[in-house]
Design a protein around this nucleic acid. Sequence first.
DNA 1: AATTAGATGTTAGAAAATCTAACATGTGTT
DNA 2: AACACATGTTAGATTTTCTAACATCTAATT
Lengths: 120, 120
Amino acid sequence: MPILPISIVMQLTDLTARQIRYYEEQKLISPARTEGNKRMFSLNDVDALLEIKDYLEQGLNVAGIRKLYETKEMPLNDQAEPKTLSDAELRNLLREEMKHLARPFSQASQRHGDLSRFFK
Amino acid sequence: MPILPISIVMQLTDLTARQIRYYEEQKLISPARTEGNKRMFSLNDVDALLEIKDYLEQGLNVAGIRKLYETKEMPLNDQAEPKTLSDAELRNLLREEMKHLARPFSQASQRHGDLSRFFK
DNA sequence: AATTAGATGTTAGAAAATCTAACATGTGTT
DNA sequence: AACACATGTTAGATTTTCTAACATCTAATT
């Protein structure tokens, strides 16, 4: 259900249009388009963006998040191919990301579906 | 929470932009505005529009619906004044509307909060 | 210290969506 | 026939969003 224009998604996620478009370019989200080529977002997209934001704040980079989605789950692009990923590839990636993860996990990331606050 | 542009509300309610703007002009709804003066609708607005549509299809006219809102409840403009309405005024109105209500209430109007179908 | 890569900021010009206002139309009422 | 109500249609202006390019900042590499 793509119902939200980018301006609203910006407010909801506190991301800039630039960031949102970049994440799409990087295949992290796939918002729908109007006939006139305007992006329209679903609530799922917003959820995904909040998750992406969370991961980024935790030090992951876009490539890493993409890999996560390609393997663990595929919450955005409903592409039918599970995309086989070699163990080495994955371990290498994770090790790479580890270097950035120099953060004491204070408040855990248990706040994803927090869109609830927007809907009385 | 005004989050929906008029184009989406049109799809959701199957109303034309003209109709939606007219109902606002007639004080049946009060959508928010962006800084640039674009209308932004809440889910409540959409609900109200579906209700309005229902009433209109049942033969009520805009003035009648407005009166209903002014008395029974006030689901849209959170105006603080209950607006005292004389009995005569009300009875007169209802009698007026009765003339239009030449419809055997086949499928009752028990389908208002049916926005659920839009949200998985 | 200089370079590179990743993420984001900024800008320009074009295209799409929405706005208001005016006038037109259809249908039922007087 | 004239009228009122609800809606259609159109025009011109304004806002929003788009893509593409180039700029900047930070962290990692050389």
